[in-house]
Design a protein around this nucleic acid. Structure first.
Lengths: 259, 259
DNA sequence: ATGGCAGCGTGACGGCCATCACAGCAGGAA
DNA sequence: TTCCTGCTGTGATGGCCGTCACGCTGCCAT
């Protein structure tokens, strides 16, 4: 095990790849800089009243997590929420026989573990760090007390949950409503391209997911994803250079959606 | 069009099967009895402070909806929330080519349209009445003002949203993680049976859904559902009498989940 | 160098299931 | 009665895609 794994922690510790939970060596490397990261004032907690912000800062603890760390595991009782400041986190659920379904790749600014923390039910998803991340952690007790004392924040949390629900439904639509795997992959790629501007009919984006992971996002097998990418390339719909993906013919992909 | 359709309304009117929106004939039949229905004090708003309850009653309007009525449509901008007092409502989403995915059959006590109302984004689902329903309606403006003024209620709403999200994830798991249609149907039936007690190894429940609707819930075709039911009957797993379904061998169904 | 490993590419095969088609069969309306 | 409509049952067919199997690359650690 690389020694750098020992250098990162939050007050709760770190769960390493493989599932074991590492107790935090207190004070070893609590990273305070995250408190001033650009997403510190994210859409969840921006524009709160000064006392609320102050209180929030008091109950927040920052930490860094290496690639492969696990913030929380499906079924675990909720310890609290993580506000992601940087890095990327994979949210997934898996069945008894080893199949995995990835629901979302979370990016900076998102709040993880919110539904479970608010309801008290077990985390419904597993959160794995896939790109080294910094996150602010707030324990469940502190968080709930904070929400009770600051109604404005509770409403903000409700809105956030509504949006999370919204995106879950979107995921559901692409997986549940399309008959062919190509339709699902096209949908997935178009969702990715949304938000990236296009230059002269092309959309460039970096795709750091493996075929396996893409397969788990759209509910297909790894081989099917590989074959579909080859197929799309042959049809001049897209082009791949390393981890850069260029969508050459967005309209062509959209045509695949209808059938 | 049957005349009884004219007899039901809320302040916003009723959307009839076929999609047209019927403006409410004010005061014709506003059903006040719903205000005292057993679910009036549901898990969303129970134990609020007296002033909050009073305020809530003031902004609530009750109405009845016939079978086939539509409370709201996917894509519509949110008008408000509906607290279902009685009856059953189908929540679904559908694709351009006519395929439909049913996410949930809501029953008395549930709150419909909450995510969209809170976030301000369009309703992500369509709500169709499948059994004559009574519901309390609260307009978006009134509801948001209420939440801003009563932080306790906002937190309750957040919890409700968390649970809604939770059940959406469950749905997703059954649809996305299982390979065979029989596995999905088994899962669906076991979910139904949860909450019904079993007498001497059997679980009895009434299943008012058509094969078509079940198919839309588990992401399969109508014919497949018919065939699977025949298959399950032949294997002595269950038995159907009219709209009563008897699960004879729950363990047998559970065996189907692993594969 | 060399082994190990994670990820990608590709062929063959087979099964599940969507689809089409049609036939019963209730219940409701005229 | 006689339609008609919505629901259920069943066969035939074909294609998609999951699975198994194997080879290939590049990369990292030893």
């Amino acid at each position: 095990m690389p020694s750098r794994f020992h250098l990162v922690a939050n007050r709760q510790g770190v769960i390493l790849r493989g599932g074991e939970f590492m107790r935090a060596p207190y004070g070893l490397e609590i990273i305070e800089s995250c408190l001033s990261c650009p997403h510190r004032e994210d859409r969840l907690f921006c524009n709160l009243s000064p006392p609320a912000v102050q209180r929030l800062a008091a109950i927040t603890s920052a930490a860094a997590y290496p690639k492969g760390a696990t913030l929380f595991v499906e079924g675990q009782s909720p310890r609290g929420v993580f506000v992601l400041c940087s890095g990327r986190v994979k949210l997934s659920t898996s069945s008894a026989d080893g199949r995995t379904l990835i629901l979302r790749i979370s990016e900076a600014g998102e709040v993880l573990g919110l539904p479970a923390t608010v309801t008290g039910k077990p985390y419904e998803l597993t959160a794995d760090v896939i790109e080294p991340a910094q996150a602010n952690f707030i324990s469940r007790e502190d968080f709930l007390r904070f929400l009770r004392e600051h109604g404005e924040a509770a409403l903000r949390v409700a809105q956030q949950l509504g949006e999370t629900y919204h995106s879950a439904i979107s995921e559901m639509r692409t997986i549940g409503l399309s008959h062919s795997a190509s339709e699902k992959l096209a949908h997935f790629l178009l969702d990715l391209s949304a938000g990236h501007e296009e230059g002269k009919g092309e959309v460039r984006l970096t795709l750091t997911l493996t075929h396996e992971e893409i397969a788990q996002m759209i509910g297909a097998s790894r081989e099917t994803v590989t074959r579909l990418f080859a197929d799309f390339k042959k049809k001049q719909l897209l082009q791949v250079k390393g981890s850069t993906l260029i969508i050459k013919n967005k309209a062509g992909l959209e045509n695949l959606l209808g059938s």
